[in-house]
Amino acid sequence: MLTYFRNIGQGIMTIVSSMAIAGRHLFTPSVTLQYPKEKWLLPERSRMRLMNKIEDCIGCGQCARSCPTECILVKTEKRGKEEAPVFASDGTAKKLRTYVFDIDMALCCYCGLCTFACPTQCLIMTGEYEYSVYDKDEHIYHFAAEKPLTVAGESRQNPPEG
């Protein structure tokens, strides 16, 4: 009998204290961010969409090898001896002509291992995160700017726009 009344009393007390603390939160400021109007200030290390500065890319393919999900496709050919030498901005000679550099962002797992493998730091993860598309194929980003001299890679499509 005593526990019966104690239980009722305890029930009422704890319900009131629960409601009190919940009621106090009615007046605390909200933490919501009104997303499309306000946006998060991203930290500089944010790992979002991959971006390749193709002018600095030497086509070494380290990124493709380090990628756990194999989302990077690099195809290169040797530059001819007679061609004028091309250099990346840090002075590394671009001995290879990169004619395919595709990144499938739908496959990417955003681990960032490729950016650390890159010897010229041309492959970076940007803070761009609003890039949803209607077709999965649109998630394949084509970065290569040069055309192959040999016929090996011509079957692949070139990007429609940058």
Binding site: P43, R45, S46, R47, C109, Y110, C111
Partner: peptide, 27 residues
């Protein structure tokens, strides 16, 4: 969220960090 903010500031990701590397840390 606050903890995830710390993780994001350090590793760049909020959920799947790839922060611990074999032999060290990413950043």
């Amino acid at each position: 969220e606050t903890i995830l903010d710390f993780f994001e500031e350090t590793s760049g990701a909020r959920l799947l960090y790839n922060y611990n590397w074999i032999g060290g840390l990413m950043h």
